[in-house]
């Protein structure tokens, strides 16, 4: 099973590189959904199958994870994208080749720094994969203009945190996991509404042009 786990963790690193270099929003949404599905599968791969079959809670958590992150969130995001009428992130604040370079350097650094950090029972790739996913999410939030790409960045960031928990066998318990998924679902729902309202009010969804509110500027 160790091979499979390492494969999934490597896939996470690959997805980060693809996310940082892709301009089509549909493509980005699919990549984030793939992260979600892999996250759902990971606990099953890490289960010690020779001892016993996983209980209902493990199956339930995996199922809910895949349904929410792999199916519901992409549907919500694609709907928000259609309503706001955007397909691509055209002029990001950091260009695509630069983004790719920065994320690759970050991955290399993460792999190099964590080589001495061995934790028994945990794959060597776990910490770098989670750290790079978190970093890519944050990087997308700060380097992209469109509000919808920023929410994608947030999802990648959240997936990175979840990956950290799953890969290190840190459990919150089934109900807390459900609560977290529910929170993320409602958050994306509210963000979708916000993106639609922003596109209607301002006729664009460029978050960097949302700059009415300052301490020195005009007051209502």
């Amino acid at each position: 099973m160790n091979m499979a786990i390492d494969l999934v963790l490597t896939a996470f690193l690959g997805i980060c590189l693809m996310l940082s270099a892709s301009s089509r929003l549909v493509h980005c949404i699919r990549l984030v959904a793939l992260q979600g599905i892999l996250l759902g599968v990971l606990p099953l791969l890490m289960w010690n199958w020779s001892k016993a079959c996983p209980g209902a809670e493990i199956w339930g958590a995996a199922f809910v994870n895949i349904m929410v992150k792999g199916v519901l969130l992409p549907i919500l995001l694609i709907r928000a994208m259609r309503k706001a009428g955007v397909k691509r992130e055209l002029e990001p604040l950091a260009g695509y080749s630069w983004s790719l370079l920065i994320v690759s350097v970050a991955s290399a650094l993460a792999l190099w720094l964590s080589r001495s950090l061995t934790i028994p029972g945990v794959s060597v790739l776990a910490i770098p994969a989670a750290a790079v996913t978190v970093f890519t999410g944050l990087f997308i939030i700060v380097s992209r203009r469109k509000a919808i790409t920023q929410s994608l960045g947030f999802l990648a960031f959240e997936n990175g945190i979840a990956l950290f928990g799953a890969a290190m066998h840190l459990e919150y318990g089934f109900f807390v996991e459900l609560g977290i998924l529910l929170d993320v679902l409602v958050l994306v729902f509210v963000m979708g509404i916000a993106v639609f309202q922003i596109s209607r009010e301002f006729e664009h969804i460029d978050a960097d042009r949302l700059n009415l509110l300052t301490d020195t500027g005009e007051v209502k």
Binding site: V134, I141, Q150, E158, F164, L187, M191, E201, L212
Partner: peptide
């Protein structure tokens, strides 16, 4: 439902969610 309120709400959602995400990492 003004443009300014929308901007405030977007910042609130994004900044606080990312911030609280860090707290989840802290919990782990």
């Amino acid at each position: 439902r003004s443009g300014r309120a929308l901007e405030a709400m977007w910042k609130y959602l994004l900044i606080c969610s990312v911030g609280i995400g860090l707290a989840l990492l802290g919990t782990l």
